[in-house]
Design a protein around this nucleic acid. Structure first.
Length: 113
DNA sequence: ATAATGACGTCGG
DNA sequence: TCCGACGCCATTA
């Protein structure tokens, strides 16, 4: 049965992360911390680890850092993708205020309007 | 078993 | 607003 490479992290966690990222609508983004909090496990670094390993099969560019900058080393590519999707970019940075996805129970993120 | 690493986050200056 | 230091948590050396 192990028809796939051994998962470095807990399979449930990895699949949850991939599934959630795959659910992010185009033009919107989620931070690593948000993903970690939504899947309810580990931390942002673990999300990054999963993305680094299996993110290639997902919309990895929709997962960015809390600073609004895309993943380290993939900034250019990610920004190009985001721009294509119509994500609000501000000087090589994503406007989390507008671009952060509010579909998955975002009831835990207070935001001033 | 201990130390270092990583697609990060938050806090203080 | 920008920069640096410390903290997190699982994997790897």
């Amino acid at each position: 049965m192990s028809a796939r490479p051994p998962l470095p992290l807990v399979a449930a966690f990895a699949e949850s992360v991939i599934d959630l990222v795959d659910t992010i609508p185009a033009g919107t983004v989620l931070t690593y911390g948000d993903v970690a909090r939504l899947v309810g496990g580990g931390g942002p670094r673990q999300v990054g680890a999963v993305m680094s390993r299996y993110g290639s099969a997902t919309a990895w560019w929709r997962v960015i850092r809390a600073s609004g900058e895309p993943a380290r080393g993939l900034e250019v590519e990610a920004l190009a993708r985001l721009r294509e999707e119509g994500a609000p970019l501000t000087g090589g940075r994503v406007d989390l205020r507008r671009a952060r996805w509010r579909g998955a129970r975002s009831d835990a993120e207070p935001r001033a309007t």
